[in-house]
Design a protein around this nucleic acid. Structure first.
Lengths: 222, 222
DNA sequence: CGGATGCTTGAGAATCATCAAACTCCGTGG
DNA sequence: CCACGGAGTTTGATGATTCTCAAGCATCCG
Protein backbone atom coordinates (compact mmCIF):
# COMPACT_ATOMS: atom_id res chain seq x y z
CA UNK A 1 0.00 0.00 0.00
CA UNK A 2 1.43 3.37 -0.99
CA UNK A 3 1.77 6.41 1.25
CA UNK A 4 -0.75 8.01 -1.04
CA UNK A 5 -3.20 5.18 -0.47
CA UNK A 6 -2.77 5.72 3.24
CA UNK A 7 -3.46 9.39 2.86
CA UNK A 8 -6.47 8.71 0.66
CA UNK A 9 -7.93 6.46 3.30
CA UNK A 10 -7.22 8.92 6.08
CA UNK A 11 -8.57 11.90 4.25
CA UNK A 12 -11.39 10.71 2.07
CA UNK A 13 -11.59 6.95 1.82
CA UNK A 14 -11.49 7.20 -1.97
CA UNK A 15 -10.41 4.37 -4.22
CA UNK A 16 -6.88 3.06 -4.35
CA UNK A 17 -4.39 4.15 -7.00
CA UNK A 18 -4.39 2.45 -10.38
CA UNK A 19 -1.69 0.02 -9.32
CA UNK A 20 0.98 0.17 -12.00
CA UNK A 21 4.23 -0.79 -10.30
CA UNK A 22 7.81 -0.77 -11.50
CA UNK A 23 10.87 -2.52 -10.12
CA UNK A 24 14.53 -1.60 -10.42
CA UNK A 25 17.62 -3.43 -9.31
CA UNK A 26 20.50 -1.64 -7.63
CA UNK A 27 22.26 0.93 -9.84
CA UNK A 28 19.65 0.71 -12.57
CA UNK A 29 18.71 4.08 -14.07
CA UNK A 30 15.01 5.02 -14.07
CA UNK A 31 15.44 8.04 -16.32
CA UNK A 32 18.21 10.28 -17.57
CA UNK A 33 18.46 14.05 -17.38
CA UNK A 34 16.92 15.32 -20.62
CA UNK A 35 14.58 12.37 -21.11
CA UNK A 36 10.99 13.22 -21.94
CA UNK A 37 8.98 13.45 -18.71
CA UNK A 38 5.57 11.84 -18.87
CA UNK A 39 5.13 10.07 -15.54
CA UNK A 40 5.87 10.64 -11.91
CA UNK A 41 6.86 7.96 -9.44
CA UNK A 42 6.48 7.21 -5.77
CA UNK A 43 9.17 5.18 -4.03
CA UNK A 44 7.45 2.31 -2.22
CA UNK A 45 10.59 0.51 -1.11
CA UNK A 46 14.34 0.93 -1.48
CA UNK A 47 16.51 4.01 -1.99
CA UNK A 48 17.10 6.13 -5.09
CA UNK A 49 19.16 9.20 -5.93
CA UNK A 50 18.82 12.15 -8.28
CA UNK A 51 22.05 13.48 -9.72
CA UNK A 52 23.43 15.89 -12.27
CA UNK A 53 26.69 15.69 -14.21
CA UNK A 54 28.99 18.41 -15.44
CA UNK A 55 30.47 17.90 -18.92
CA UNK A 56 33.87 16.95 -17.48
CA UNK A 57 32.32 14.15 -15.44
CA UNK A 58 31.99 15.78 -12.04
CA UNK A 59 28.83 14.49 -10.42
CA UNK A 60 26.58 15.99 -7.76
CA UNK A 61 23.89 13.90 -6.10
CA UNK A 62 21.12 16.42 -5.48
CA UNK A 63 18.62 14.27 -3.63
CA UNK A 64 18.27 10.90 -1.95
CA UNK A 65 14.76 9.39 -2.11
CA UNK A 66 13.25 6.86 0.29
CA UNK A 67 9.85 5.22 0.78
CA UNK A 68 7.07 7.80 0.45
CA UNK A 69 9.14 10.22 -1.64
CA UNK A 70 8.04 11.17 -5.13
CA UNK A 71 10.14 11.97 -8.16
CA UNK A 72 9.76 12.88 -11.79
CA UNK A 73 7.86 16.16 -11.60
CA UNK A 74 9.18 18.93 -13.79
CA UNK A 75 8.30 22.34 -15.08
CA UNK A 76 9.22 21.44 -18.64
CA UNK A 77 8.73 18.30 -20.65
CA UNK A 78 12.10 16.82 -19.73
CA UNK A 79 13.74 15.69 -16.49
CA UNK A 80 16.38 17.99 -15.02
CA UNK A 81 18.22 15.16 -13.21
CA UNK A 82 19.09 11.52 -13.71
CA UNK A 83 17.31 9.09 -11.37
CA UNK A 84 19.20 5.95 -10.35
CA UNK A 85 18.43 3.18 -7.88
CA UNK A 86 20.89 2.83 -5.00
CA UNK A 87 19.31 -0.43 -3.84
CA UNK A 88 16.63 -2.65 -5.30
CA UNK A 89 13.59 -0.40 -5.59
CA UNK A 90 9.84 -0.76 -5.96
CA UNK A 91 7.98 2.16 -7.50
CA UNK A 92 4.38 3.21 -7.98
CA UNK A 93 3.89 4.81 -11.41
CA UNK A 94 1.46 7.69 -12.03
CA UNK A 95 0.65 9.13 -15.44
CA UNK A 96 0.87 12.90 -15.75
CA UNK A 97 -2.81 13.20 -16.68
CA UNK A 98 -3.68 10.99 -13.72
CA UNK A 99 -2.11 13.61 -11.46
CA UNK A 100 -3.79 16.48 -13.26
CA UNK A 101 -7.26 14.99 -12.72
CA UNK A 102 -6.89 13.87 -9.10
CA UNK A 103 -6.98 16.68 -6.54
CA UNK A 104 -5.94 14.22 -3.87
CA UNK A 105 -2.91 13.06 -5.79
CA UNK A 106 -2.08 16.65 -6.61
CA UNK A 107 -2.24 17.54 -2.95
CA UNK A 108 0.09 14.71 -2.03
CA UNK A 109 2.54 15.68 -4.77
CA UNK A 110 2.48 19.19 -3.43
CA UNK A 111 3.30 18.07 0.07
CA UNK A 112 6.23 16.09 -1.32
CA UNK A 113 7.45 19.10 -3.27
CA UNK A 114 7.38 21.32 -0.19
CA UNK A 115 9.14 18.73 1.91
CA UNK A 116 11.83 18.26 -0.76
CA UNK A 117 12.26 22.01 -1.04
CA UNK A 118 12.81 22.30 2.68
CA UNK A 119 15.35 19.50 2.61
CA UNK A 120 17.15 21.10 -0.33
CA UNK A 121 17.46 24.31 1.68
CA UNK A 122 19.11 22.37 4.50
CA UNK A 123 21.40 20.62 2.06
CA UNK A 124 22.33 23.97 0.51
CA UNK A 125 23.58 25.10 3.92
CA UNK A 126 25.55 21.88 4.23
CA UNK A 127 27.23 22.30 0.84
CA UNK A 128 27.82 26.02 1.14
CA UNK A 129 28.93 26.37 4.73
CA UNK A 130 29.76 23.13 6.52
CA UNK A 131 33.15 21.44 7.02
CA UNK A 132 33.80 17.86 5.90
CA UNK A 133 33.29 16.59 9.46
CA UNK A 134 30.03 18.51 9.82
CA UNK A 135 28.80 17.16 6.50
CA UNK A 136 29.44 13.53 7.38
CA UNK A 137 27.96 13.98 10.87
CA UNK A 138 24.85 15.58 9.35
CA UNK A 139 24.59 12.72 6.86
CA UNK A 140 24.80 10.11 9.63
CA UNK A 141 22.17 11.94 11.71
CA UNK A 142 19.83 11.99 8.70
CA UNK A 143 19.79 8.19 8.94
CA UNK A 144 18.65 8.20 12.58
CA UNK A 145 14.87 8.74 12.73
CA UNK A 146 13.47 11.17 15.33
CA UNK A 147 16.89 12.52 16.23
CA UNK A 148 18.83 15.64 15.32
CA UNK A 149 15.87 17.54 13.93
CA UNK A 150 13.91 20.41 15.43
CA UNK A 151 11.99 18.03 17.67
CA UNK A 152 14.83 15.71 18.63
CA UNK A 153 13.67 13.00 21.01
CA UNK A 154 16.99 13.04 22.85
CA UNK A 155 18.68 9.94 24.26
CA UNK A 156 16.19 7.20 25.14
CA UNK A 157 17.10 7.43 28.83
CA UNK A 158 20.03 8.89 30.67
CA UNK A 159 21.61 5.61 31.72
CA UNK A 160 21.30 3.47 28.59
CA UNK A 161 24.04 4.07 26.03
CA UNK A 162 22.86 6.27 23.17
CA UNK A 163 23.48 3.86 20.28
CA UNK A 164 21.98 3.10 16.91
CA UNK A 165 22.87 1.11 13.80
CA UNK A 166 22.29 2.74 10.42
CA UNK A 167 22.45 1.34 6.89
CA UNK A 168 24.04 3.75 4.44
CA UNK A 169 22.67 2.23 1.19
CA UNK A 170 25.36 4.21 -0.61
CA UNK A 171 28.99 3.62 -1.54
CA UNK A 172 31.67 6.03 -0.35
CA UNK A 173 31.70 7.53 -3.85
CA UNK A 174 27.96 8.17 -3.77
CA UNK A 175 28.20 9.69 -0.30
CA UNK A 176 31.06 11.90 -1.49
CA UNK A 177 29.05 13.05 -4.52
CA UNK A 178 26.12 13.77 -2.23
CA UNK A 179 28.14 15.75 0.33
CA UNK A 180 30.27 17.65 -2.18
CA UNK A 181 33.49 15.92 -1.07
CA UNK A 182 35.94 13.36 -2.47
CA UNK A 183 35.81 9.70 -1.59
CA UNK A 184 39.12 10.03 0.29
CA UNK A 185 37.85 12.84 2.48
CA UNK A 186 34.70 10.88 3.36
CA UNK A 187 36.85 7.89 4.24
CA UNK A 188 39.22 9.96 6.38
CA UNK A 189 36.37 11.58 8.33
CA UNK A 190 34.82 8.18 9.00
CA UNK A 191 38.19 6.96 10.25
CA UNK A 192 38.46 9.97 12.56
CA UNK A 193 35.03 9.20 14.01
CA UNK A 194 36.13 5.60 14.50
CA UNK A 195 39.29 6.70 16.34
CA UNK A 196 37.21 8.96 18.60
CA UNK A 197 35.07 5.94 19.47
CA UNK A 198 31.90 7.61 18.20
CA UNK A 199 31.14 4.97 15.55
CA UNK A 200 32.04 1.42 14.53
CA UNK A 201 31.98 0.32 10.90
CA UNK A 202 30.11 -2.99 10.98
CA UNK A 203 30.04 -3.63 7.25
CA UNK A 204 31.10 -1.16 4.56
CA UNK A 205 27.43 -0.34 4.20
CA UNK A 206 26.43 -0.34 7.87
CA UNK A 207 27.64 1.85 10.72
CA UNK A 208 27.00 1.45 14.41
CA UNK A 209 26.76 4.86 16.06
CA UNK A 210 28.00 4.45 19.63
CA UNK A 211 26.92 7.91 20.74
CA UNK A 212 24.17 9.54 18.72
CA UNK A 213 24.29 12.78 20.71
CA UNK A 214 28.04 12.93 20.19
CA UNK A 215 27.60 12.77 16.41
CA UNK A 216 24.78 15.30 16.59
CA UNK A 217 27.10 17.76 18.36
CA UNK A 218 29.36 17.62 15.30
CA UNK A 219 26.71 18.60 12.73
CA UNK A 220 27.30 22.34 13.14
CA UNK A 221 23.70 22.83 14.21
CA UNK A 222 24.35 22.98 17.98
CA UNK B 1 -0.25 43.64 -12.74
CA UNK B 2 1.09 40.43 -11.27
CA UNK B 3 2.46 37.50 -13.21
CA UNK B 4 -0.50 35.60 -11.85
CA UNK B 5 -2.90 38.16 -13.25
CA UNK B 6 -1.20 37.74 -16.60
CA UNK B 7 -1.60 34.01 -16.40
CA UNK B 8 -5.23 34.36 -15.34
CA UNK B 9 -5.95 36.46 -18.39
CA UNK B 10 -4.09 34.14 -20.70
CA UNK B 11 -5.62 31.00 -19.36
CA UNK B 12 -9.11 31.86 -18.23
CA UNK B 13 -9.75 35.58 -18.16
CA UNK B 14 -10.93 35.30 -14.56
CA UNK B 15 -10.92 38.17 -12.09
CA UNK B 16 -7.82 39.85 -10.83
CA UNK B 17 -6.24 39.00 -7.48
CA UNK B 18 -7.53 40.63 -4.31
CA UNK B 19 -4.91 43.35 -4.47
CA UNK B 20 -3.25 43.45 -1.05
CA UNK B 21 0.24 44.76 -1.59
CA UNK B 22 3.21 45.13 0.69
CA UNK B 23 6.35 47.23 0.35
CA UNK B 24 9.80 46.73 1.84
CA UNK B 25 12.87 48.92 1.76
CA UNK B 26 16.31 47.46 1.11
CA UNK B 27 17.54 45.07 3.82
CA UNK B 28 14.17 44.96 5.57
CA UNK B 29 13.16 41.48 6.75
CA UNK B 30 9.79 40.14 5.58
CA UNK B 31 9.80 37.13 7.90
CA UNK B 32 12.24 35.18 10.03
CA UNK B 33 12.93 31.46 10.00
CA UNK B 34 10.59 29.96 12.58
CA UNK B 35 7.89 32.65 12.23
CA UNK B 36 4.34 31.42 11.88
CA UNK B 37 3.54 31.00 8.18
CA UNK B 38 0.10 32.22 7.18
CA UNK B 39 0.57 33.99 3.87
CA UNK B 40 2.50 33.59 0.70
CA UNK B 41 3.94 36.39 -1.37
CA UNK B 42 4.70 37.17 -4.98
CA UNK B 43 7.57 39.49 -5.81
CA UNK B 44 6.21 42.19 -8.14
CA UNK B 45 9.31 44.33 -8.22
CA UNK B 46 12.79 44.32 -6.65
CA UNK B 47 14.99 41.50 -5.39
CA UNK B 48 14.76 39.40 -2.23
CA UNK B 49 16.75 36.56 -0.71
CA UNK B 50 16.01 33.56 1.47
CA UNK B 51 18.74 32.57 3.89
CA UNK B 52 19.46 30.27 6.79
CA UNK B 53 21.89 30.79 9.68
CA UNK B 54 23.95 28.30 11.64
CA UNK B 55 24.16 28.88 15.41
CA UNK B 56 27.73 30.23 15.12
CA UNK B 57 26.62 32.89 12.63
CA UNK B 58 27.59 31.29 9.34
CA UNK B 59 25.00 32.28 6.76
CA UNK B 60 23.90 30.59 3.54
CA UNK B 61 21.69 32.39 1.06
CA UNK B 62 19.55 29.60 -0.37
CA UNK B 63 17.56 31.50 -2.98
CA UNK B 64 17.39 34.85 -4.74
CA UNK B 65 13.89 35.94 -5.74
CA UNK B 66 12.97 38.33 -8.54
CA UNK B 67 9.76 39.61 -10.14
CA UNK B 68 7.33 36.74 -10.69
CA UNK B 69 8.86 34.52 -7.99
CA UNK B 70 6.79 33.41 -5.02
CA UNK B 71 7.86 32.78 -1.45
CA UNK B 72 6.45 31.77 1.89
CA UNK B 73 5.07 28.31 1.13
CA UNK B 74 5.90 25.66 3.67
CA UNK B 75 4.99 22.16 4.69
CA UNK B 76 4.63 23.08 8.35
CA UNK B 77 3.19 26.12 10.04
CA UNK B 78 6.50 27.97 10.22
CA UNK B 79 8.96 29.33 7.66
CA UNK B 80 12.18 27.37 7.16
CA UNK B 81 14.18 30.40 5.98
CA UNK B 82 14.44 34.11 6.67
CA UNK B 83 13.27 36.39 3.83
CA UNK B 84 15.03 39.73 3.42
CA UNK B 85 14.81 42.45 0.79
CA UNK B 86 18.01 43.10 -1.16
CA UNK B 87 16.54 46.19 -2.84
CA UNK B 88 13.30 48.09 -2.37
CA UNK B 89 10.60 45.51 -3.03
CA UNK B 90 6.93 45.42 -3.89
CA UNK B 91 5.00 42.29 -2.98
CA UNK B 92 1.58 40.86 -3.66
CA UNK B 93 0.17 39.15 -0.55
CA UNK B 94 -2.01 36.01 -0.69
CA UNK B 95 -3.72 34.44 2.31
CA UNK B 96 -3.20 30.72 2.73
CA UNK B 97 -6.93 30.00 2.45
CA UNK B 98 -7.02 32.16 -0.70
CA UNK B 99 -4.54 29.76 -2.27
CA UNK B 100 -6.39 26.68 -1.07
CA UNK B 101 -9.62 27.80 -2.73
CA UNK B 102 -8.23 29.04 -6.05
CA UNK B 103 -7.21 26.27 -8.45
CA UNK B 104 -5.62 28.87 -10.69
CA UNK B 105 -3.51 30.33 -7.92
CA UNK B 106 -2.62 26.83 -6.80
CA UNK B 107 -1.49 25.99 -10.29
CA UNK B 108 0.69 29.06 -10.47
CA UNK B 109 2.21 28.34 -7.05
CA UNK B 110 2.96 24.85 -8.28
CA UNK B 111 4.76 26.12 -11.34
CA UNK B 112 6.86 28.37 -9.12
CA UNK B 113 7.68 25.48 -6.83
CA UNK B 114 8.86 23.34 -9.71
CA UNK B 115 10.91 26.13 -11.18
CA UNK B 116 12.51 26.84 -7.81
CA UNK B 117 13.24 23.16 -7.32
CA UNK B 118 15.00 23.00 -10.66
CA UNK B 119 17.05 26.05 -9.82
CA UNK B 120 17.96 24.60 -6.42
CA UNK B 121 19.24 21.49 -8.19
CA UNK B 122 21.50 23.65 -10.36
CA UNK B 123 22.69 25.59 -7.33
CA UNK B 124 23.41 22.34 -5.51
CA UNK B 125 25.81 21.42 -8.31
CA UNK B 126 27.41 24.84 -8.04
CA UNK B 127 27.95 24.53 -4.27
CA UNK B 128 29.00 20.90 -4.32
CA UNK B 129 31.24 20.73 -7.35
CA UNK B 130 32.25 24.08 -8.84
CA UNK B 131 35.42 26.13 -8.24
CA UNK B 132 35.26 29.73 -7.04
CA UNK B 133 35.81 30.99 -10.60
CA UNK B 134 33.07 28.74 -11.95
CA UNK B 135 30.68 29.89 -9.23
CA UNK B 136 31.18 33.58 -9.93
CA UNK B 137 30.95 33.05 -13.70
CA UNK B 138 27.73 31.08 -13.23
CA UNK B 139 26.37 33.86 -11.01
CA UNK B 140 27.16 36.52 -13.61
CA UNK B 141 25.56 34.46 -16.39
CA UNK B 142 22.41 34.10 -14.30
CA UNK B 143 22.02 37.88 -14.61
CA UNK B 144 22.12 37.80 -18.42
CA UNK B 145 18.67 36.85 -19.78
CA UNK B 146 18.48 34.34 -22.63
CA UNK B 147 22.13 33.37 -22.35
CA UNK B 148 23.99 30.47 -20.81
CA UNK B 149 20.94 28.25 -20.39
CA UNK B 150 19.93 25.21 -22.40
CA UNK B 151 18.57 27.41 -25.18
CA UNK B 152 21.31 30.02 -25.22
CA UNK B 153 20.70 32.61 -27.89
CA UNK B 154 24.43 32.97 -28.55
CA UNK B 155 26.14 36.23 -29.44
CA UNK B 156 23.79 38.70 -31.14
CA UNK B 157 25.85 38.65 -34.34
CA UNK B 158 29.36 37.54 -35.08
CA UNK B 159 30.83 40.99 -35.64
CA UNK B 160 29.28 43.04 -32.85
CA UNK B 161 31.07 42.71 -29.52
CA UNK B 162 29.29 40.35 -27.14
CA UNK B 163 28.68 42.74 -24.25
CA UNK B 164 26.11 43.31 -21.56
CA UNK B 165 25.71 45.32 -18.37
CA UNK B 166 24.25 43.60 -15.33
CA UNK B 167 23.11 44.95 -11.96
CA UNK B 168 24.08 42.69 -9.08
CA UNK B 169 21.60 44.01 -6.46
CA UNK B 170 23.77 42.28 -3.85
CA UNK B 171 26.81 43.26 -1.82
CA UNK B 172 29.98 41.16 -2.03
CA UNK B 173 29.06 39.63 1.32
CA UNK B 174 25.62 38.59 0.05
CA UNK B 175 27.13 37.16 -3.12
CA UNK B 176 29.68 35.25 -1.02
CA UNK B 177 26.95 33.84 1.22
CA UNK B 178 25.00 32.83 -1.88
CA UNK B 179 27.95 31.14 -3.61
CA UNK B 180 29.36 29.44 -0.51
CA UNK B 181 32.56 31.52 -0.58
CA UNK B 182 34.13 34.32 1.47
CA UNK B 183 33.87 37.98 0.53
CA UNK B 184 37.62 38.05 -0.18
CA UNK B 185 37.44 35.14 -2.61
CA UNK B 186 34.54 36.74 -4.49
CA UNK B 187 36.50 39.97 -4.71
CA UNK B 188 39.66 38.22 -5.92
CA UNK B 189 37.79 36.33 -8.64
CA UNK B 190 36.15 39.53 -9.84
CA UNK B 191 39.60 41.14 -9.98
CA UNK B 192 40.94 38.20 -12.01
CA UNK B 193 38.09 38.62 -14.50
CA UNK B 194 38.88 42.34 -14.69
CA UNK B 195 42.55 41.61 -15.39
CA UNK B 196 41.59 39.18 -18.14
CA UNK B 197 39.53 41.97 -19.72
CA UNK B 198 36.33 39.94 -19.50
CA UNK B 199 34.48 42.43 -17.30
CA UNK B 200 34.60 46.03 -16.10
CA UNK B 201 33.25 47.05 -12.71
CA UNK B 202 31.17 50.15 -13.45
CA UNK B 203 29.81 50.71 -9.96
CA UNK B 204 30.21 48.35 -7.02
CA UNK B 205 26.76 47.13 -7.86
CA UNK B 206 27.00 47.07 -11.65
CA UNK B 207 29.28 45.06 -13.90
CA UNK B 208 29.84 45.44 -17.61
CA UNK B 209 30.52 42.05 -19.17
CA UNK B 210 32.78 42.66 -22.17
CA UNK B 211 32.50 39.13 -23.49
CA UNK B 212 29.43 37.17 -22.43
CA UNK B 213 30.55 34.00 -24.21
CA UNK B 214 33.92 34.26 -22.50
CA UNK B 215 32.27 34.31 -19.08
CA UNK B 216 29.96 31.49 -20.11
CA UNK B 217 32.98 29.33 -20.97
CA UNK B 218 34.11 29.66 -17.37
CA UNK B 219 30.89 28.34 -15.77
CA UNK B 220 31.98 24.70 -15.90
CA UNK B 221 29.00 23.84 -18.07
CA UNK B 222 30.87 23.86 -21.41
C1' DC C 1 40.34 -19.62 -2.14
C1' DG C 2 41.15 -15.94 -5.28
C1' DG C 3 40.04 -12.14 -7.93
C1' DA C 4 37.96 -7.71 -8.27
C1' DT C 5 35.90 -3.96 -6.57
C1' DG C 6 35.74 -0.72 -3.23
C1' DC C 7 37.97 1.31 0.75
C1' DT C 8 41.76 3.26 3.47
C1' DT C 9 46.02 5.65 4.23
C1' DG C 10 49.96 8.63 3.11
C1' DA C 11 52.56 12.43 0.95
C1' DG C 12 52.37 16.46 -1.46
C1' DA C 13 49.88 20.19 -3.91
C1' DA C 14 46.10 23.32 -4.77
C1' DT C 15 42.44 25.96 -3.46
C1' DC C 16 40.17 28.67 -0.49
C1' DA C 17 39.84 30.81 4.26
C1' DT C 18 41.71 33.87 7.66
C1' DC C 19 43.77 37.90 9.39
C1' DA C 20 45.31 42.43 8.62
C1' DA C 21 45.78 46.67 6.28
C1' DA C 22 44.90 49.97 2.76
C1' DC C 23 41.94 51.69 -0.54
C1' DT C 24 37.59 53.22 -3.05
C1' DC C 25 33.18 54.47 -3.41
C1' DC C 26 29.20 56.96 -2.04
C1' DG C 27 26.25 59.71 0.43
C1' DT C 28 26.23 63.63 3.67
C1' DG C 29 26.87 68.05 5.22
C1' DG C 30 29.40 72.13 5.21
C1' DC D 1 30.92 71.77 -5.24
C1' DC D 2 34.12 69.76 -2.39
C1' DA D 3 35.69 67.70 1.86
C1' DC D 4 34.74 64.21 5.09
C1' DG D 5 33.54 59.88 7.19
C1' DG D 6 32.14 55.34 7.12
C1' DA D 7 30.82 51.31 5.04
C1' DG D 8 32.09 48.27 1.74
C1' DT D 9 35.79 46.48 -1.12
C1' DT D 10 40.35 45.13 -2.55
C1' DT D 11 44.87 43.29 -1.85
C1' DG D 12 48.60 40.80 0.47
C1' DA D 13 50.69 37.31 3.47
C1' DT D 14 49.94 33.22 5.75
C1' DG D 15 47.65 28.99 7.07
C1' DA D 16 44.14 25.34 7.17
C1' DT D 17 41.34 22.31 4.81
C1' DT D 18 40.46 19.60 1.19
C1' DC D 19 41.95 17.54 -3.24
C1' DT D 20 45.05 14.74 -6.07
C1' DC D 21 47.88 11.03 -6.95
C1' DA D 22 49.63 6.70 -5.57
C1' DA D 23 49.91 2.55 -3.15
C1' DG D 24 48.33 -0.94 -0.12
C1' DC D 25 44.49 -3.16 2.18
C1' DA D 26 39.86 -5.13 3.23
C1' DT D 27 35.65 -6.95 1.87
C1' DC D 28 32.55 -9.30 -0.88
C1' DC D 29 31.23 -12.84 -3.98
C1' DG D 30 31.68 -16.37 -7.03
Amino acid sequence: MTELDNEMHRESGSKSSSGRKHRLSAHEVLFYEGDRADRIYEVLDGVMMLYKLLPDGRRQVVYVLRAGDMLGFTNHDTFDCTAEALTAVELQVYETREVATSPLLQHYVNRCLLSQMEHLHEHTVLLGRKSAMERVATFLMSLVPDRGGANCAGPANRDAPDMRSVVLSMTRQEIADYLGLTIETVSRVISQLKRKGLIKVEKQDSIHIQNVCGICQLTGMH
